[in-house]
């Protein structure tokens, strides 16, 4: 089984966000990680490989620094990695990513494409579906359980108040959700070893793409930092009195009860 996993390097969830001198989000002094949802996708791919044989290729669009993310995937057990890095991708939106990824994937042979349900930086949940559309493949999003049954895929997709069982022929694009597996831990030794492995790198020109092809659909006009929530009322003391005060306040001041 040939599996391609599309990943993104994102800011660490604890990172504090600030702007750089050009008014964009500052990515210099921030710890970057493999998007946690994409880790589940990589893990699932490796598990499928362990069960059915085949190979796992991890693809990402990012800067030079994204190699670190790919090293982690290699240490976890991915076979090949591929990075698309081009300064013209600075303003990329999910449409851009879908164009680039679909162009890369057109040159490859695959049975299954796995992605995370969303990247924790922009959290738009668009790339998997846009990619599926461009490749004219079926899609299953928010998958929390996956099995291969007689060459088809059978997936559990989380919906409000329950789940759907979705069955599809392969190839298909599947975005995975927390709960699908437990991600293995690549030791520091394995990560060091992975650093010596090859990462194929492409520019837009290498892929035959022009600026027009990857022009984003969205334009960010402004970043707005929300006012931090202020510390409110503190209650302490006798339990029944405190609770009475709380209820009074919720009923008469906040008016939520």
């Amino acid at each position: 089984m040939k599996i391609v996993v599309c990943i993104k390097q994102t800011f660490d969830s604890e990172a504090s966000i600030s702007l750089n001198e050009t008014g964009g989000i500052d990515d210099q002094s921030v710890i970057q990680i493999v998007n946690p949802y994409d880790e589940y996708a990589v893990e699932e791919a490796i598990r499928l490989k362990e069960k059915y044989g085949g190979e796992v290729t991890v693809v990402t669009v990012g800067k030079e620094n994204a190699r670190k993310a790919l090293h982690q995937c290699l240490a976890m057990g991915a076979d090949h990695t591929l990075l698309v890095n081009d300064p013209q991708l600075e303003d990329a939106d999910s449409h851009t990513y879908a164009v680039v990824l679909s162009t890369v994937l057109c040159t490859m042979d695959y049975d299954l494409i796995l992605c995370g349900r969303e990247a924790i930086d922009t959290s738009v949940s668009q790339v998997p579906s846009r990619l599926a559309e461009r490749l004219d493949l079926p899609q299953i999003n928010m998958v929390s359980h996956l099995e291969i049954v007689e060459g088809n895929v059978k997936a559990t997709r989380d919906i409000e108040g329950g789940s759907e069982i979705v069955e599809s022929a392969l190839p298909a694009v599947i975005s995975v959700q927390k709960g699908i597996n437990e991600v293995r831990y690549p030791s520091l030794r394995l990560i060091m070893r992975a650093k010596k492995m090859a990462i194929k790198t492409f520019s837009l020109a290498d892929l035959g793409l022009t600026m027009d092809d990857v022009a984003p659909y969205l334009s960010v006009e402004e970043y707005i930092f929300p006012e931090p929530r202020k510390e409110g009322m503190r209650l302490k003391g006798e339990v029944n009195e405190v609770v009475t005060q709380l209820i009074q306040h919720l009923r008469h001041e906040v008016k939520v009860l």
Binding site: H95, V124, Q126, D158, Y217
Partner: peptide
């Protein structure tokens, strides 16, 4: 921005060449 909206909106957006604001 529900499980259905998340699933269908980007698919349709890419098909008709539209920008999509999620969430």
């Amino acid at each position: 921005y529900t499980s259905m909206g998340k699933d269908i909106a980007p698919r349709v957006a890419e098909r008709i060449g539209a920008g999509l604001i999620s969430d």
